[in-house]
């Protein structure tokens, strides 16, 4: 297991009477993409901003790269890259001007031209910020977060408001950041994004962490059930497959049959049974639970409710 780059223990942060974050402890390891996931207002941004040193925690201990984010703020700023939620740039600043300004503020920087090319912005060097599309703005923010070659990159709700295509492009960039050896700490309220991108996730709700682990482990622990759905015109099909290993029960609706079960052998067992019984199958698919289902199970409501 890699070393911890970020450790948070018993973090608490209030805004007046609102308890935004309560008793949150977590650890982000070197070289991973760690996702803090939860609905709007759960406390993701607050947690992240305390870790970045932009907010002072009411209680708790935070260490990033061995530094105290508040006390060692200026040393830390040279080593982390930050993308904020809902923070823009001057409407009429040009892309290269923003890159230039940011580059001038750090001791060590990567080559700006290559960075813009990697982010697909080389054709937008002279464009005003206000003329960029949503996806281009987010890519510029990523560029600003990466210009000084930071060791840890913070990305807050990076793809909110983007169309699916732009979102996928951003995902590829984030994976690329990790593949270059950086540690990524991100937040999202999109479960699909967390599942695609994150090596490990922590689920936060009402300011409290309710679960932590790899997406696969969380699904296996909380939603082990699998479903096989197939269509067949052979009679009594569900009845004939009911005894395959792992099958718990079966339902039939017209010619569509659903087998519910769990375990590693569940799907394989059904395939063998289908072959053995020579059942004529016209359609066959497996349904695996997602983080969305885990969230529903743990909180009793959907993430967007």
């Amino acid at each position: 297991m890699s070393a911890a780059v970020i450790t948070v223990s018993h973090l608490r942060k209030t805004y007046g009477a609102t308890v935004a974050v309560d008793d949150v402890s977590l650890e982000v390891r070197e070289g991973e993409i760690f996702g803090l996931i939860g609905p709007n207002g759960a406390g993701k941004t607050t947690t992240m901003e305390c870790v970045e040193g932009l907010r002072r925690a009411d209680r708790g201990i935070i260490s990033v790269l061995g530094l105290d984010p508040v006390r060692d703020a200026s040393a830390l700023r040279q080593r982390i890259g930050v993308q904020h939620q809902d923070a823009h740039l001057q409407k009429r600043i040009k892309v290269w001007e923003a890159i230039d300004l940011w580059a001038s503020l750090y001791g060590r920087t990567v080559e700006a031209g290559a960075l813009l090319a990697r982010l697909g912005l080389e054709g937008k060097r002279d464009a005003w910020f206000m003329t960029l599309s949503g996806g281009q703005k987010q890519r510029l923010f990523i560029a600003l977060a990466l210009i000084h070659d930071p060791e840890v990159v913070f990305l807050d709700e990076l793809t909110t408001g983007l169309d699916p295509q732009a979102r996928r492009a951003i995902w590829a960039l984030v994976t690329g950041i990790r593949d270059r050896g950086k540690t990524v700490f991100l937040t999202t309220h999109l479960m699909e994004e967390a599942e695609r991108l994150c090596d490990r996730v922590a689920i936060i709700e009402h300011g409290r962490l309710i679960e932590m682990g790899t997406p696969a482990d969380l699904v296996a622990t909380h939603c082990p059930e699998r479903r096989v759905v197939f269509t067949s015109d052979s009679p009594g099909v569900a009845e004939r497959l009911k005894d395959a290993p792992g099958v718990r029960h079966a339902t039939t609706e017209g010619q569509t049959h659903t087998l519910h079960g769990e375990g590693d052998d569940f799907v394989t067992g059904i395939i063998h049974a289908v072959a053995r019984e020579s059942i004529h199958v016209r359609g066959f698919r497996t349904e695996v639970p997602t983080l969305e289902d885990v969230f529903l199970k743990l909180t009793g409501h959907g993430i967007r409710d």
């Binding site: 700023r77 923070a87 740039l89 503020l105």
Partner: peptide, 16 residues
Amino acid sequence: IYREGGILKRLRATPL
């Protein structure tokens, strides 16, 4: 305008 647009916040998170 800079405050509302988060521009002040973004600049403040730099070494400036």
